[in-house]
Design a protein around this nucleic acid. Structure first.
Length: 508
RNA sequence: GGCCCGUUAGCUCAACUGGUAGAGCAACAGACUCUUAAUCUGUAGGUUGAAGGUUCGAGUCCUUCACGGGUCACCA
């Protein structure tokens, strides 16, 4: 029944889309003429010899005379981005999304019939050109076309060639248009791809294995957040999209996989902002026989190495700031940071009720605050935005760290750190809590808070406690937000700029 | 969710205090064999996001709604 309803909606949308604009109708006419001329408008593969980028990178530096001597034959595909028709000759640019290459089309070279056929091509069409490389008077690398084949019609007009596509909403909704018009967008995602593959290299070199753990979980755990809920028909059970892979990765550590990592999506049913997308990519890694100090060292090493590999330097621009990844990074205890940036004397924090009172001014009315939550509020309000250079904020209260081992020196603190860069939380790590009885107590404490109405408190995971009962060796573990890391390295202020298809409300 | 801003031709943008909705690119017709934001001549293209309201008259003012951006709150 639901299916039928959906079908009706689809049909109506198909109908509105079939209302063609004047410019689209002009393209339809040209396409029809191509069909009448016997052109295959959805051709099979053609054996091209180069990409635009290959030609540009291989031949741009070659001198005009040498290029003419070489008579380099190419067969290159690309999307037409601009056309300059001048009677019996035409210049146009084709793009592979990354680079542009000019083509020089002469009526006397390709023949009358071919030349006239080109008038049926529009900006946006994809073609492949066979020809010889040369350089124009102004030294621009160009293909002198001998022939060309039609590969695909663009049935809509493209955005304006000079300004490109500016409308942010359209850029996200039609990312393909963004990629066609704005080549720097492709650069963001090429960097993202390189960054992830460099991370894999780093862990692979250290003997880690990459694993995949469930995204659909009966008990969502490993973080304090609201989950997305779904239902499995055959099993008749509720399932949740994971908010973190943490508890499964630690189960693997119990099982003797001593160095594991996972790079994949987690999902949190929370607000959307320039730093939050409901689905986001996290790196999580766990290593037995290490602790949170080792995690700090690895984090410094990893991100420093990424900076050198991606940007060739340890200092990168971010907005009006310059971020330095030079080691060692600043380390500051949570309570010290709180006191330092809020201006509250350390003694003030001994009065727990006073702190809750103080913090309640910064949250919406009716929010019930525990002491730990109040500290977190003060941290977000006073500390976070001031931490521009990479800073490890260490030893937060145990109360808000239900999965971390308590500190040896101070049992109220957790052996844990959060990494803040440019005011963003980039990473979160701890010495993993291995005591099943203690874990049970922490879960029960969280359950109490859930009863009080905190639906982001951690759920009790009996199966996980049982796994701990088999023995989790001392281990350090960490999660790093990949999207935010990419934001840093691409100098972007919005997470939507580094996610290909960020979540938007569907149109209409 | 609160507040602020935006939504005008396919795209990028104009339109004073309410008074006939314009330009560039793109499109269409024509000229042009080294152009490159090509150039030149001409033509067409609009339910100003939607629905109400105020007014002699609304792109402009008011209300509601939709979508987006920013920000605060919530939240990793």
């Amino acid at each position: 029944m639901t299916d039928q309803k959906e079908e009706k909606i689809d049909l109506r949308e198909a109908h509105t889309q079939s209302e063609r604009s004047e410019q689209e109708l002009a393209r339809d006419v040209k396409l029809e003429k191509l069909v009448q001329e016997g052109i295959d408008i959805h051709p099979h593969k053609v054996d091209v010899t180069h990409s635009v980028t290959e030609i540009v990178s291989q031949y741009t530096s070659i001198k005009k005379e040498d290029l003419e001597k070489q008579q380099t034959e190419v067969f290159v595909p690309g999307r037409i981005l601009s056309i300059r028709r001048m009677g019996r000759a035409t210049f146009f640019h084709v793009s592979d999304g990354r680079n542009k290459l000019q083509v020089y089309l002469r009526g006397d070279k390709v023949g009358q019939e071919s030349y006239e056929r080109f008038s049926l091509f529009d900006i946006g069409d994809i073609i492949a050109i066979k020809g010889v490389l040369f350089k124009t008077r102004t030294e621009e690398l160009t293909v002198l076309a001998e022939s060309f084949v039609f590969l695909a019609k663009c049935r809509h007009p493209l955005p304006e060639k000079f300004h490109g596509l500016q409308d942010v909403e359209l850029r996200y909704r039609k990312r393909y248009l963004d990629l066609i018009m704005n080549p720097e967008i492709g650069d963001i995602f090429r960097l993202r791809s390189t960054l992830i593959s460099d991370i894999r290299k780093y862990f692979d070199e250290r003997g880690y294995i990459e694993v995949e753990t469930p995204m659909m979980q009966a008990v969502p755990g490993g973080a304090l957040a609201r989950p997305f809920k779904t239902f499995h028909n055959a099993l008749g059970i509720d399932l949740y999209l994971r908010i973190a892979p943490e508890l499964y990765l630690k189960r693997l550590t119990v099982g003797g996989m001593n160095k594991v990592y996972e790079i994949n999506r987690s999902f949190r049913n929370e607000g959307i902002s320039s730093e939050h997308n409901p689905e986001f990519t996290m790196l999580e890694f766990y290593e037995a026989y290490t602790d949170y100090n080792d995690m700090m060292n690895m984090t410094e090493e990893l991100i420093n190495r990424l900076s050198l590999a991606l940007k060739g330097t340890e200092e990168i621009p971010y907005g009006e700031h310059t971020i330095s990844f030079k080691r060692p990074w600043k380390r500051m205890k949570f309570m010290e940071a709180l006191s330092y940036y809020s201006g509250l004397a350390p003694s003030r924090f001994e009065n727990k009720e006073g702190i809750v009172e103080f913090a309640s001014d910064f949250v919406s009315e009716g929010t019930s605050l525990t002491y730990g939550k109040a500290l977190d509020v003060i941290f977000d309000k006073f500390v976070k935005q001031n931490l521009i250079q990479p800073t490890f904020i260490t030893n937060p209260p145990k109360e808000i760290s239900p999965l971390a081992k308590a500190s040896k020196e101070n049992p109220d603190e957790a052996e844990r750190f959060e990494l803040v860069i440019a005011g963003m939380e980039l990473a979160n790590a701890f010495s993993e809590l291995s005591d099943p009885e203690e874990q049970r107590k922490r879960f029960e404490q969280q359950a109490e808070e859930r009863k009080k109405g905190d639906d982001e408190s951690h759920r009790i995971d009996i199966d996980y406690i049982q796994a701990l009962e088999y023995g989790l060796p001392p281990a350090g573990g960490e999660g790093i937000g990949i999207d935010r890391l990419v934001m840093l390295f691409t100098d972007k202020k919005s997470i939507r700029e580094v996610i290909l298809f960020p979540l938007l409300r569907p149109k209409k």
